[in-house]
Lab assay of single mutants.
Amino acid sequence: KRPVSAMFIFSEEKRRQLQEERPELSESELTRLLARMWNDLSEKKKAKYKAREAALKAQSER
């Protein structure tokens, strides 16, 4: 099983909040919005998710 990506971790963290704030969005619209949010995120903020990705990857390799 492959470890999850930093973007996937970000998306899972933000998805529920966005669904509550924007219930009119379809699943595909929500996914596009999350992708745009990820792309607009600064490298400094992405680092938090990339660190979690690395930790999960290291854990799965044990």
Rank of each mutant, 00 (worst) to 15 (best):
M7L: 09
L18Y: 11
T31C: 07
A47K: 13
L34K: 00
Y49S: 01
K50G: 03
K50V: 12
R62I: 11
D40A: 07
L18E: 01
E13L: 03
Y49G: 00
L34N: 00
M7R: 12
L56K: 09
S28G: 12
K14D: 01
K14C: 02
E27L: 02
K57G: 10
E61M: 15
R62P: 04
N39L: 07
L56W: 08
L33C: 08
P23S: 04
E21D: 07
E24T: 07
K44V: 13
K45P: 02
R52D: 08
L30N: 03
E27S: 05
A54C: 11
S60D: 07
K14N: 09
R22I: 03
L33V: 10
S5Y: 06
A58D: 15
R32A: 13
L30V: 13
E24G: 10
E13N: 02
A51E: 13
R52K: 15
I9L: 13
E24C: 04
R15K: 15
S60Y: 06
L56Q: 09
E20Q: 14
M37T: 04
V4P: 04
L18F: 09
T31H: 10
K48N: 15
E24W: 09
E27I: 02
R52E: 13
L30Q: 13
F8T: 11
R15Y: 03
E61L: 11
A6Q: 02
T31M: 07
R36V: 12
L25N: 01
R36G: 08
L30T: 07
L30I: 05
Y49N: 00
P23V: 03
S5F: 02
E29I: 02
E24F: 06
S42L: 01
R16F: 06
Q17D: 08
S5P: 08
L41K: 01
E13K: 08
A51P: 02
A55D: 12
E61A: 11
W38G: 01
I9M: 11
S42K: 03
S5W: 02
K1H: 04
A51Q: 11
K1S: 03
A35F: 05
N39E: 12
A58L: 13
S28E: 14
L41Q: 04
K46P: 00
A58I: 15
E43A: 14
S60I: 11
K44Q: 11
T31I: 03
P3G: 09
E27P: 10
R52V: 07
W38S: 01
R36T: 12
R16E: 08
S60Q: 12
E29D: 13
S26H: 05
K45S: 13
Q19I: 15
E20P: 03
K45Y: 05
A6I: 00
N39R: 11
K57V: 09
I9W: 04
L34T: 09
S26A: 08
W38E: 01
E29V: 03
S28M: 07
A6E: 05
S60A: 13
P23I: 05
A47N: 03
E24Y: 09
A51K: 11
E12F: 03
S60K: 13
E61W: 07
P23F: 02
L30C: 10
A6H: 01
D40M: 12
W38D: 02
E24I: 01
L33R: 06
E13W: 02
K45M: 12
S60M: 08
P23R: 03
Q19Y: 09
A51L: 12
L56F: 10
K44N: 01
S11D: 03
R16H: 10
P23H: 03
R2W: 02
A54V: 14
Q59T: 13
A47T: 07
A35V: 11
E20T: 10
K45N: 11
E20C: 13
K57S: 14
L34V: 13
E12V: 06
R2K: 04
A58W: 09
E27D: 15
A51S: 10
F8S: 12
V4S: 09
S28I: 12
Y49L: 01
L56P: 06
E24Q: 06
L56E: 12
E53T: 04
L25V: 06
F8R: 14
L34F: 03
L18H: 01
T31W: 04
Q19H: 08
R16S: 14
Y49I: 01
L34Q: 01
S42R: 01
L56A: 13
R52M: 09
A55P: 07
K50L: 13
E61Y: 05
A35D: 12
R36I: 08
N39M: 10
F8M: 14
M7S: 11
R62L: 09
S26V: 05
R52I: 07
E43G: 04
R16W: 08
Q19G: 10
A6K: 02
E21K: 11
A35H: 02
A51M: 11
E20N: 06
R36N: 13
K50E: 14
Q59P: 11
S42P: 09
R16V: 12
M37D: 02
I9Y: 05
D40Q: 12
A54G: 10
R2M: 07
R2E: 07
V4T: 08
Q17I: 04
I9C: 10
K48C: 10
R62Y: 15
M37K: 03
F8C: 10
R62E: 15
M7E: 12
K44M: 09
R52C: 08
Y49R: 00
A54S: 10
A54H: 14
K46E: 01
E27R: 07
E61N: 05
M37H: 03
L41W: 00
E24H: 10
E20H: 09
S26L: 04
P3W: 03
E13Q: 07
N39S: 11
E29L: 03
E24L: 04
P3E: 11
Q59I: 14
R22S: 07
K46L: 02
A35M: 08
T31L: 08
E12P: 01
R62W: 15
E61G: 10
F10E: 00
I9A: 09
E61V: 10
K1W: 04
L25F: 02
L25A: 08
E12Q: 07
S28L: 11
E61F: 07
L33M: 13
E53N: 02
K48F: 10
P3F: 13
A35L: 11
S42A: 08
L56I: 14
K48R: 12
E24K: 05
M37P: 00
L25Q: 01
W38H: 00
M37E: 09
E13V: 05
K48L: 08
L56M: 06
K50A: 07
T31S: 13
L33E: 15
W38R: 00
K57W: 06
A35S: 11
K57N: 10
S26Y: 01
P3D: 12
A58R: 12
E24N: 05
E24D: 15
K57I: 12
K50S: 07
I9T: 04
I9F: 08
A51H: 07
Q17G: 12
K46Q: 08
L18N: 00
R32K: 15
S5E: 15
Q19T: 07
F10V: 00
Q59W: 05
S11I: 14
F10Q: 00
V4G: 09
I9V: 07
E61P: 05
A35G: 10
F8W: 13
K1L: 12
W38Q: 01
S28P: 12
S28K: 12
P3L: 10
K57F: 11
K57E: 15
K46Y: 01
P3Y: 10
R16I: 08
R32W: 07
E21S: 13
L33K: 06
A55Y: 06
E13R: 04
K14T: 08
V4L: 13
F10T: 01
E24S: 06
E12H: 05
A6T: 02
S60F: 15
A51Y: 09
K46D: 00
R62M: 13
E20V: 11
E53Q: 06
M7A: 12
A55F: 15
Q59V: 13
P23N: 02
A47G: 09
S42T: 10
S28W: 07
R52T: 12
K45V: 09
L18K: 02
M37L: 11
A55E: 15
A55C: 13
R62K: 15
M7Y: 14
P23K: 05
R22E: 05
A47R: 12
Q19W: 06
K45Q: 15
E21V: 08
A58C: 10
M7W: 05
A55I: 07
K50C: 12
R32T: 14
D40V: 05
A54R: 13
L25R: 02
E61R: 04
K44S: 14
V4M: 13
K46R: 10
A55K: 11
M37V: 02
E27T: 07
E12N: 12
Q19E: 10
S26Q: 08
K57D: 09
E20I: 08
K46T: 02
I9K: 03
S60E: 14
F10D: 00
K46I: 02
P23Q: 03
N39V: 06
A58K: 12
R22Y: 10
R2C: 05
